[in-house]
């Protein structure tokens, strides 16, 4: 129950959620909900792990896993943007397809032995900063640092650059963006695929860095869905998403560590002495997601902020959305 260890672990495993959530923010900012994050993550995870097992090269695994997630997302883009199908159902289909395909591809991988993982790095000067150093900069996977860079870049891209302005325009008012000469369909395709690449990266981060190995659907155990919830919590901001991802992962780690000691705050630890009670501990992260959504939804209603205005609505030139 060392807070530094818990927070450092939160940063490590929160990186997975962070990648997935940032990717989904890009897609949703362009007006397309993709509920297939879980499926894309599983594909990314299995391709990355399978490649690393077959070639011994974790970096190649990372690249192919990321691309696999992007490739799967193309299906969602075609069906929702070109065919104008219901985005919610298409996303669910993507999850089914991704999960099934990942299980087919991962058929023999659960027995695979240890693989060489992505390197871990301790940043020289920064790691000696008190409190912050041991949590953020000591013995973390290289992907954690990639996450540190991705978040401000995504924030800057969306909020401060010209392409980011186009992105937001397409998500808020596609008809106006179209009038100004922005190719709505093209941008939406691009950002859905960006979302897929990030989801694939998130999956690869699980199997190559955070918790190596292939365990079928349990590899992601619903983190793709948590990432979708995180986007709502973050109100479509990468900075808030990063905070949420790290905090959520730290809480999850804390709930795991609570089961360890025999005594808790001087009284016998009920979770140590009766293991069936730990099922309630395992429920807490999911309940926490619901509670946070309830809190955020109330706030969003009051301040009238929230989702991109055209989220979920196909754009057809000359037709009004419903």
């Amino acid at each position: 129950m060392d807070p530094t260890i818990i927070l450092a672990a939160g940063v490590a495993s929160g990186t997975v959620l962070l990648f997935a959530a940032v990717g989904e923010i890009f897609a949703e900012r362009s007006g397309v909900i993709n509920l297939g994050v879980e499926g894309m993550m599983l594909i990314g995870a299995v391709v990355a792990f399978g490649t690393a097992v077959a070639t011994g090269d974790a970096w190649l695994g990372l690249v192919l896993g990321t691309l696999a997630g992007g490739l799967l997302s193309v299906l969602h883009a075609i069906v929702t943007i070109s065919f104008r199908a219901e985005q919610v159902v298409s996303g669910l289909a993507l999850t089914f397809l991704g999960t099934g395909l990942a299980r087919v591809l991962g058929e023999d991988l659960s027995k695979a032995g240890a693989i060489s993982l992505l390197p871990r790095i301790t940043v020289p000067v920064l790691s000696s900063i008190p409190v912050i150093g041991p949590i953020f900069f000591t013995d973390q996977s290289v992907l954690v640092y990639v996450g540190f860079i991705v978040v401000p870049v995504a924030w800057y891209w969306i909020g401060r650059t010209r392409p980011g302005l186009h992105l937001r325009a397409v998500g808020e008012n596609p008809a106006a963006a179209d009038t100004l000469g922005v190719d709505v369909a093209r941008l939406r395709y691009a950002y859905v695929v960006v979302g897929g690449l990030f989801a694939g990266l998130a999956g690869a981060a699980i199997t190559l860095a955070v918790s190596p190995g292939w365990f079928g659907d349990l590899t992601t155990s619903g983190q793709g869905w948590i990432a979708v919830a995180l986007v709502i919590f973050a109100q479509w901001s990468p900075l808030r998403a990063a905070f949420g991802a790290f905090a959520f992962a730290a809480i999850r780690r804390m709930l795991l560590d609570i089961q360890g000691p025999q005594d808790l705050f001087g009284i016998p630890n009920p979770f140590y002495h009766d293991h069936t009670l730990t099922f309630f501990l395992q429920m807490l992260p999911y309940i926490l997601v619901i509670l946070v959504l309830v809190a955020v939804s109330g706030e969003a209603m009051r301040k009238r902020i929230g989702a991109p205005a055209a989220l979920g609505i196909p754009y057809v030139r000359g037709e009004r959305g419903h």
Binding site: A229, I232, I290, L293, V294, S297
Partner: peptide, 11 residues
């Protein structure tokens, strides 16, 4: 509260 039902039902 207008909470997204997809996430809640999944959780």
């Amino acid at each position: 509260r207008g909470v997204n039902e997809i996430i809640v039902t999944l959780m």
